[in-house]
Amino acid sequence: MGLWEDAKNIRDKDPAARNVLEVIILYPGFHVLVTHRIAHFFYQKKLFFIARLISQLSRHFTGIEIHPGAKIGHKLFIDHGMGIVFGETTEIGDNCTIYHGVTLGGTGKDTGKRHPTLGNNVLVGAGAKVLGPVYIGDNVRVGAGSVVLKNLPANATAVGVPAEVVRVGNIKCCPADDLDQQALPDIVSNRISELEARLSRMEAKLQGEYPPDKPSRAQ
């Protein structure tokens, strides 16, 4: 499975792509996969300067920064791509989808393995940040704008800053582009509503307008 399969995968997943030739000629998400394979080859040969030179030239032309040390599986779909950053020890499984503005980066506090590992069929929404040596399980969905700082179990959907798991499915495999980014819960709004409801109950209880939690002994 090679670059031709990657190009066909982009064509299949992007409704705006008309054919494979268009993807090969016009899509920066495909171009960066080509240049990364070359840069990663030189990185593995310990020719680090050449590897970084290729990756930086690719960054200039595509707006996507992938360190040549990053490990990328088959059929990665980078949609739009502008502003994407993958750190040196990033690992990405097969059939993943990454939207623009995503960072798979470090926290600045770790050494060695410093960047995330994504399983298979993972989708990371626009502007999301996954930071540190965290593991993102298979079939995980990360909502747009979320900040992931801890491991996420397989089949989970996570949203928020910091991200929290809001849904866990029982599926074994699913398409990597099926995240409904409009139907995700607003964690902050939900927490505020819960606090307001709790405050109202406390005020009512203090004013004698709310029944006590437990009956008194006199009753």
Rank of each mutant, 00 (worst) to 15 (best):
G2F: 02
N9A: 15
K13T: 11
I24E: 03
L26D: 00
Y27P: 03
Y27R: 07
G29W: 01
F30Y: 12
V34D: 00
F42P: 10
K46Y: 01
L47F: 04
F48P: 05
F48Q: 08
A51C: 12
S58M: 06
E65V: 04
H67W: 13
P68Y: 06
G69F: 07
A70T: 02
A70C: 03
I72R: 08
H74A: 14
L76R: 01
I78C: 07
M82E: 01
I84T: 09
I84G: 05
G87M: 04
G93Y: 00
D94A: 00
D94M: 00
N95H: 08
N95A: 03
T97C: 02
V102C: 05
G105W: 08
G106M: 12
A126E: 08
A128R: 03
V130C: 06
G132C: 03
I136R: 07
N139F: 10
V142C: 10
V142M: 09
G143M: 07
G145M: 09
S146D: 15
V147D: 15
L152S: 11
A154I: 03
A158L: 09
V159L: 09
V159R: 11
P162I: 10
V165Q: 08
V168E: 14
G169E: 15
C173E: 15
C174R: 11
P175T: 04
D177G: 04
A183L: 02
L184W: 01
L184S: 03
D186I: 00
I187E: 01
I187H: 02
R191V: 07
E194G: 09
L195I: 11
R201D: 15
E203P: 13
E203Y: 12
Q207R: 13
G208N: 10
E209G: 09
Y210Q: 11
R217Y: 13
Q219V: 11
